[in-house]
Write a protein that binds this DNA or RNA. Structure first.
Length: 425
RNA sequence: GUGGUCGUAGCUCAGUCGGUAGAGCGCCGGGAUGUGGCCCCGGAGGUCGCGGGUUCGAGCCCCGUCGGUCACCCCA
């Protein structure tokens, strides 16, 4: 459509959100925000760009997101910055900078940027809501965080989604497991898929997640992460599972769930929608990251959180036919065929009284203005013609129900608006 | 980064063996001497993504390019 000197479009992989879709965004953010508040989270805003080191150190150089998907740039002062590719690292950086009292519970809603090829449910700018808890290693926090996500999805009306959980081990048991996995993969290197023949040494855990058939056979025989967990990780994981069961949350243990960021320890989890046709069906995910605060220069501090993809959640809602938001419609629509000055004053006074009112502009014909009134969805039209102008009155015509139209004085109209908030007696 | 697929009015699309463009919806106006929705009539709006080639002639064929879309990879 667009060519060299034609109108610009939104950049590839980005999109504009207009009504009525934007109405759903407002509603979704409202639901998430009030739920998070009920769970004791307060909202945090952090910059959309950070020193690149926040992400390099936090997410890990070896990850795809940092290695090949970040929007990095140098500003006019020569600083190396990057648009945020995910939410957690920025929040942790803010924690280290401000040292709020722990445990600190923060929720956020923010765009994220990744330079990937767009496809269904995947964008270069997407949006996430999420929470992070910094400063507690208690497994009950894991349970709460996962429960919050679960309740959010339920609150939207989603039913066709699943929760996978896993434990990645900690600094005591993970290194030795990683080594034994690396040793194992070394002996099977030639049988791995092309991608992992090259990369299994730096990031052996990622191979567990590979969906290619070649790797699959190798993975079958690989040492089990679950069996390699140390006692404290095992206990932690048991308590998480127990808490989830008590909360009535259905989950699946998936010991091949290895998420894409290097910072995860112990609990990891992912919510997937089974209603989404495409390959991009992960609607939310997160986990514990007990070493991340230190990596970003803070004191040893435990942490856990998740991110939920707004666009994907809305796609899932569409697929399940839930969360259909009816947009707000005006109570009244002022039709003024005497030039518009009266409409100008009437809408202002009614709006001051707290009523949602629209009007027509450009001195259109009555037919045209009523057409606009109808399309606006307004419950009633307030008509001002020569007669009403003469007598300082207005004619109320109901647009959605059979009722005889009535003419009342403007004084009466404004009195109703300010005393009862309704334009009808 | 790799591959498939598509690119005609604001939107959804039609366009038959190549002969310089149509529908529905939407929008604007009228049919009612002040009154929307249904119906009827009329109107505006497109250099057929862009560039090149073949041809007497290309929306239709060929090449390139840009963009959309889907998939791989990875993730939300």
């Amino acid at each position: 459509m667009a060519s060299d000197n034609q109108a610009p479009r939104a950049p590839s992989g980005t999109h504009d959100v207009l009504a009525p879709e934007s109405d759903r965004w407002i509603a979704l953010l409202g639901i998430f925000g009030s739920l998070a508040q009920r769970y004791g989270f307060s909202m945090v805003h952090t910059p959309m760009f950070e020193d690149v080191r926040v992400f390099h150190r936090g997410i890990g150089e070896g990850s795809d997101v940092v290695g090949k998907e970040m929007y990095e740039f140098t500003d006019r002062g020569g600083r190396n910055l990057a648009l945020r590719p995910e939410g957690t690292a920025s929040i942790v950086r803010a924690f280290v900078q401000h040292r709020p009292a722990a445990p600190w519970r923060a929720w956020y809603a923010t765009p994220s940027f990744r330079y990937e090829r767009p496809q269904a449910g995947r964008f270069r700018q997407h949006h996430q809501v999420g929470v992070e808890v910094l400063g507690s290693a208690d497994a009950d926090v894991d349970v709460e965080v996962i429960t919050l996500a679960q309740r959010f999805f339920e609150g939207l009306g989603l039913t066709r989604f699943t929760l996978n959980i896993n434990s990645m081990g900690d600094e005591h048991c993970r290194p030795s497991y990683t080594q034994s996995l690396r040793d194992y993969l070394e002996t099977k290197a030639s049988e791995l898929c092309k991608e992992h023949q090259a990369s299994h040494e730096n990031n052996p855990l990622r191979v567990l997640d590979c969906k290619r058939p070649e790797c699959f056979a190798v993975i079958e025989g690989a040492p089990s992460l679950a069996e390699a967990l140390c006692d404290s990780c095992r206990t932690h994981f048991e308590r998480v599972k127990d808490g989830l069961r008590k909360a009535g949350i259905v989950f699946e243990i998936n010991d091949r769930l290895v998420r894409g960021f290097d910072y995860y320890t112990r609990t990891t989890f992912e919510f997937s929608s089974s209603a989404l046709e495409g390959a991009q069906n992960a609607i939310g995910g997160g986990g514990r990251y007990d070493g991340l605060v230190e990596l970003l220069g803070g004191p040893p501090t435990s942490g856990i959180g998740f991110g939920i993809g707004i666009e994907r959640v809305l796609l899932a809602c569409d697929a399940e036919n839930v969360f259909d938001i009816a947009p707000e419609v005006p109570e009244a629509f002022v039709v003024d065929v005497t030039g518009g000055e009266r409409a100008r004053d009437i809408v202002e006074r009614l709006r001051d009284a707290g009523i949602f009112v629209e009007r027509a502009y450009d001195n259109k014909s009555m037919k045209s203005q009523l057409k606009s009134a109808d399309r606006s969805g307004a419950r009633m039209a307030l008509l001002v013609g020569e007669e009403e102008a003469e007598s300082e009155s207005i004619t109320i015509r109901m647009l959605r129900e059979e009722r005889e139209q009535v003419t009342i004085s403007l004084d009466e109209l404004f009195a109703r608006a300010t005393t009862t908030g309704s334009l009808l007696p």
